[in-house]
Design a protein around this nucleic acid. Structure first.
Lengths: 152, 152
DNA sequence: ACTTTGTTGTTGCATTTGCAACTAAAAGCG
DNA sequence: CGCTTTTAGTTGCAAATGCAACAACAAAGT
């Protein structure tokens, strides 16, 4: 990698590279522990942190930042494993709601220590709390702006 | 998204979400301009910023942070489009070197303004130079540590 | 009411991607 | 030298992913 002249472009380049490298290692750690992929974890975590414990497919797709078709197959596989359950949305005849099962909850709890260990050693370890806060707020601005772009 | 208690874990969560959202929009911008994907850009950029203008497949894979098999097919497709050229490595009978062609160089130049515009509006715009520098150095530490892990 | 427009979720299809197995060649070692 | 082990690149196969098209329903406009 050659250093880009502009500090923001350099930050971008490292942002992308770092994430690719870390995700690779995190996936490897999950596989090593014979656990599902990060995509599954994300879905489980999103559902668990939802007010009513369920979410419509479309909202799940947006929160997980994947395409609708992808979330359909993702939920297909997870439902097949008994981690989530689909049911018709009572308020909207088109809708389908996806709900976490006890088994799904248990799997997420089992995956978290593995995930946490990777986050800590690969990422958190190299950041002062002050830096972590700065990164948090900066990326929050970026995410918010991106979300606004969508509603436009 | 629920705010994680630990600042580093929150930073991680936003790091992942932000990148997924931005990559999605960048890919959309390339597609809109009828240009290849970011993966191709990365390969072109890496080759262009190499001392001799070429790289061995294995090193290309490491720099682009993709699997060896993936880089094989990636280069297959790009070679098919005349953007790169393969040749045997003179120093190592197993090796293959991948070299950028003039056409590949031209394509990268054509893709850059599209990419730059997205980086600026989606990412750089929301960062002070000071913050960009902090992110650069922080992620550099993370990348270096990850690379060391590999050589161990 | 009814026609038009938009939204939701799923599917067919093509593309991308990784893992494991393989071949060929280098490197290490007695 | 021979023999084993490691490394480089490719391939078969399976899994994941996105786009475009579709059906079902909702919402909006007249």
């Amino acid at each position: 990698m050659v250093a880009a002249p502009d500090p923001r472009q350099r930050a971008w380049a490292r942002f992308v590279t770092a994430q690719a490298m870390l995700l690779e290692q995190i996936e490897a750690a999950f596989a090593e522990a014979e656990l599902p992929s990060l995509a599954w974890y994300d879905v489980l975590w999103i559902l668990e942190n939802t007010e009513h414990g369920w979410l419509r497919m479309h909202d799940l797709a947006r929160k997980a930042v994947v395409s609708r078709s992808n979330v359909t197959r993702l939920v297909d596989r997870m439902e097949n494993d008994g981690l989530v359950e689909r049911s018709d949305c009572p308020l909207d005849g088109r809708g389908t709601v996806c709900e976490l099962t006890a088994k799904g909850r248990a799997l997420r709890a089992k995956m978290w220590p593995v995930y946490k260990k990777q986050i800590d050693t690969l990422f958190g370890k190299h950041l002062e709390p002050r830096e972590a806060d700065l990164i948090s707020t900066a990326f929050e601005r970026i995410i918010d702006s991106s979300n606004q772009r969508k509603s436009t």
